[in-house]
């Protein structure tokens, strides 16, 4: 089996170095206290990122096929509102959660149908459904917040099991699943094949439409799960959940070396990308307490890492 990911290991190396550098600077600035870099702090701060991290996994796969999904944040809102409305109406939380994930999956599947079966460009479909799904969430809930979720859901968002955040475990399981999918399965090869050359993939008999449909549905599922985590973390379900998260997710994925043109990239890069963004964000805010600085630093890292990568691998066109 041909390894389809060509240059991304270079990017992963760059990211690894940046990540270690960030942590080193953090440790140095921490002084003797070691508060930021201490495992307890790190574990607790990590709960801020797992919803984004979970969204980044299917996004990576979709971008590898040459697509994009801008609607993940809005799908999250739709799932969150579904969860809240059902729970408020007296549905047991686990059923409400299950239905919320189903709703997310369906929202993703609708994107998938338009992209894969109708043949509309994913950017256009998801630009439209980004407005549509958030609008539905606002309409269904009348923009009301819903609160008072049971402990179980709150633990899912911010709680720990044996010291490890539960949302982190969900992410780890999903990440390993996606790694196995890309590295070990035929479907994984299809994903890279579609992204590398869709026409060729079609001639080779790869079920392009079905693969895409599954991927966009998976993205919806992930949005549903991320919604449960985000709702649980703050004990609030509201139609503004996840607004703007789509750009942060895409930033993490492309920072992780997945090519926006498709065919190249991987889950490991995305994990590193997410980790780097998370660490930089937390660390800058921890030490300099200035929100606008984070914007600048993340932007510079995003552009800088690709420039660095281009220097490191001159062969890339």
């Amino acid at each position: 089996m041909m390894a389809p990911r060509k240059r991304s290991l270079v990017q992963e190396g760059v990211l690894g170095i940046l990540l270690i550098a960030t942590l080193a600077i953090a440790a140095w600035l921490d002084g003797p206290d070691g508060a930021f870099i201490s495992p307890a702090t790190q574990l607790e701060l990590s709960t801020h990122i797992f919803d984004l991290a979970i969204l980044a996994l299917p996004m990576t796969l979709i971008i590898i096929t040459g697509g994009i999904d801008l609607s993940v944040g809005s799908t999250m809102a739709l799932s969150a509102v579904t969860l809240g409305m059902l729970y408020e109406a007296g549905t047991p939380i686990w059923i409400a959660g299950f239905v919320a994930i189903i709703v997310g999956t369906l929202a993703g599947a609708i994107n998938g149908i338009f992209v894969a079966r109708v043949g509309v460009h994913p950017l256009i479909v998801t630009l439209a459904s980004m407005a549509l799904y958030r609008g539905l969430a606002e309409g269904i809930s009348l923009a009301r917040p819903i609160s008072g979720f049971p402990d179980g859901l709150q633990r899912l968002g911010g709680g720990t099991f044996a010291g490890v955040p539960i949302s982190g475990m969900i992410f780890a399981a999903a990440a390993i699943g996606c790694m196995l999918l890309t590295a070990r399965t035929v479907a994984g090869r299809w994903i890279y094949g579609i992204g590398d050359n869709e026409r060729a993939a079609s001639y080779a008999g790869i079920p392009i439409a079905r693969t895409k449909l599954w991927l966009y549905s998976l993205s919806g599922t992930a949005a549903g799960v991320a919604a449960l985590i985000a709702v649980g973390r703050r004990n609030t379900a509201k139609a503004d959940i996840g607004s703007g998260i789509e750009l942060e997710v895409i930033t993490a994925v492309v920072l992780g070396g997945t090519s926006i043109f498709g065919g190249r990239g991987g889950i490991l890069g995305t994990i590193l990308g997410v980790a780097l963004i998370h660490e930089v964000r937390e660390f800058v805010s921890w030490h300099w307490q200035d929100d606008k600085l984070i914007l600048i630093v993340i932007g510079v890292i995003l552009i800088g890492s690709v420039l660095l990568n281009n220097l490191a691998s001159r062969s890339r066109v």
Binding site: L23, A24, A27, S38, P39, Q42
Partner: peptide, 8 residues
């Protein structure tokens, strides 16, 4: 890295 920071 974390434990080094913590040990100081």
């Amino acid at each position: 890295g974390a434990s080094m920071g913590g040990l100081a």
